[in-house]
Structure formats: structure tokens, C-alpha cells
């Protein structure tokens, strides 16, 4: 990793309370351009609230937010949606227009762009998400997987640099889950910064180069997955378990993953290694 780490978004001592209940407490996170971050932790740990704060929907009670190194004025927080896109877990709760074209145009329209530019972005999102054939369809006649693609296109059309996904694979069948994972990989290749909430440790292990673990409104751990998945107390507190590939690897080598030179992250890497050694 010789790339210079460019700071994209940073929070300092960010806290948020809903009525008199503290939901987030002193969150300090710096997100760098191009990172792949998995956000984990039990339901109610504050992940969604954290995202809504990053995206400007909710305004933190205390704390500061820095965008590309510059500190934001509090009244500029609600403009964060221009830089930070948020794909909701349930596509139905995100889709509001009565056809796909209008739906995808909603975000760009709010950015105050010209009609021609909105048109261009909508078309680009159609192409990226393979939606050309669905553009005149109504959301109520789309399948779950199609709705998910539309909800991702919604955010792509806003051309935000940081993309947040809240459990993108939840409630999808295996085929569509795989499709969404491929899309996520492609977004990374295309230079997007990704922040993905998930309960799937295996996915987090193969996808992320950094893990954020939330528990009871606080940031419990922040670091590379192979490190965090070794910390028993973190796993217990956040109700997580070791990824299957990691467990198999450790059983085979008899060592903790960190102590070996090569560490497989995916089933493919593991099987490739195994078939080599068996031969």
C-alpha cells in the first residue's frame, strides 16, 4: 500500500441522543478515500444512527465533522448528502417515485443540477446497474432483487464519493446477494469509498480492509479484520464469531492467522492453497 492516504470524512467526538437516550457516544472515525470498511455490531448498537449522522439526515448533538480535511459548520451538516450516499436496507422504504426513471432522478434533481445533467446521470445509472429494460416500470411490479438494484442506482446517480450500504444483502436470495456483492466489488474498482453494515462475518472478512465494530453506541474496535477477529473479548461483546475461512485456516496451521505470512480471506484462496499443497 504505497498510496497516499487521502482523508475523506472524519468525525471527532461525535455524539447523538434521541430524546434523552444516548445512541452514539464520542465516535472518532477517519475514513480515507478508496477504503472498504465493514461496519459490524448487534442491532441497536448505533450503526444506522451513525450513518444518518454521516449523511446529514440527523444532526449530532455534539462533535465535529470534517470533509476532506475541512471542518464543517454545523449548518452545513445537512448538505452532507451531496458527498455521502446512503443505500437503505429495505429498498421499499427508499423508493418513492412511481416509475424507475423518476425514482432515480429524485436525488440528482435535489442536487440542483440542470435537466440535461440529471438525464445524463440517470442514463449512466441505468447502464451501471443494468436497468435499461426496467426504466418505465413501476416499483410495485419489480422483484426484490430488481428493487435493490434500483435503490443502488438511486444513490449512484447522485455521484457521491462515499457510499454507505445498510445490510445490502439482507432479505435477498443467493443469486441476487451474489449480484450485489459483485456490484460492490465493481464500485471499489471504480474508486468509490465504501462503508457497509453487515452481520455476515464471512462477507466482512473477504470484502473489508478495515472493520468498525459498534457496541452500545460506542466504537468498540477499529482496525484490519484479521486483527479484530482475533480479539475474543470484542467478538463476545459484539456478538460476532470468527469467519469460517479463518477458523479452517487456523485449525490447519495450528497458528493464529496473523502469525502466518499468507492468510486466505476467501474460500477460493483457501481451496487454491489447499489443492496446491495436496499436490
Amino acid at each position: 500500500m504505497s498510496r497516499i492516504r487521502e482523508e475523506l470524512l472524519k468525525t471527532r467526538d461525535l455524539s447523538f441522543a434521541y430524546e434523552d437516550k444516548t445512541v452514539l457516544q464520542n465516535i472518532n472515525v477517519t475514513i480515507y478515500r478508496g477504503e472498504r470498511i465493514a461496519v459490524m455490531g448487534p442491532n441497536g448498537a448505533g450503526k444506522s444512527t451513525f450513518f444518518l449522522n454521516l449523511n446529514g439526515v440527523l444532526t449530532p448533538g455534539q462533535g465535529e465533522i470534517f470533509l476532506e480535511g475541512r471542518k464543517l459548520e454545523k449548518k452545513a451538516f445537512h448538505e452532507l448528502y451531496k458527498k455521502v450516499g446512503f443505500v437503505f436496507q429495505d429498498a421499499d422504504s427508499q423508493i418513492i417515485a412511481s416509475n424507475v426513471r423518476a425514482e432515480i432522478s429524485f436525488g440528482p434533481m435535489n442536487l440542483g443540477l440542470s435537466k440535461a445533467e440529471v438525464q445524463r446521470r440517470v442514463e449512466a445509472a441505468f447502464d451501471y446497474m443494468d436497468l435499461q429494460e426496467l426504466k418505465d416500470r413501476a416499483p410495485q411490479y419489480l422483484s426484490g432483487g430488481e428493487k435493490k438494484r434500483v435503490s443502488i442506482a438511486d444513490i449512484l446517480a447522485m455521484e457521491s464519493e462515499l457510499l454507505i450500504f445498510d445490510e445490502p444483502m439482507a432479505a435477498l436470495d443467493p443469486v441476487n446477494a451474489k449480484l450485489v456483492e459483485q456490484i460492490i466489488d465493481r464500485l471499489h474498482t471504480d474508486g468509490k469509498t465504501l462503508l457497509i453494515a453487515t452481520h455476515d462475518v464471512d462477507f466482512a472478512y473477504r470484502f473489508a480492509d478495515r472493520l468498525l465494530v459498534f457496541s452500545e453506541g460506542a466504537l468498540l474496535a477499529d482496525g484490519p479484520p484479521e486483527e479484530i477477529f482475533q480479539k475474543q473479548e470484542v467478538l463476545e461483546k459484539a456478538h460476532l464469531k470468527k469467519p469460517a475461512v479463518m477458523q479452517v485456516w487456523e485449525a490447519l496451521t495450528g497458528k493464529e492467522s496473523l502469525q502466518t505470512d499468507f492468510v486466505p480471506r476467501t474460500v477460493d484462496q483457501l481451496t487454491a492453497y489447499l489443492s496446491q499443497t495436496v499436490k
Partner: peptide
């Protein structure tokens, strides 16, 4: 989250 500000507009 998509910048709604009291006005619903579509292409």
C-alpha cells in the same frame, strides 16, 4: 438522505 427539502421533483 437524498436531499429532500420540502419539494418532491422528478425527471
Amino acid at each position: 438522505a437524498r436531499g429532500y427539502d420540502g419539494k418532491l421533483e422528478f425527471l
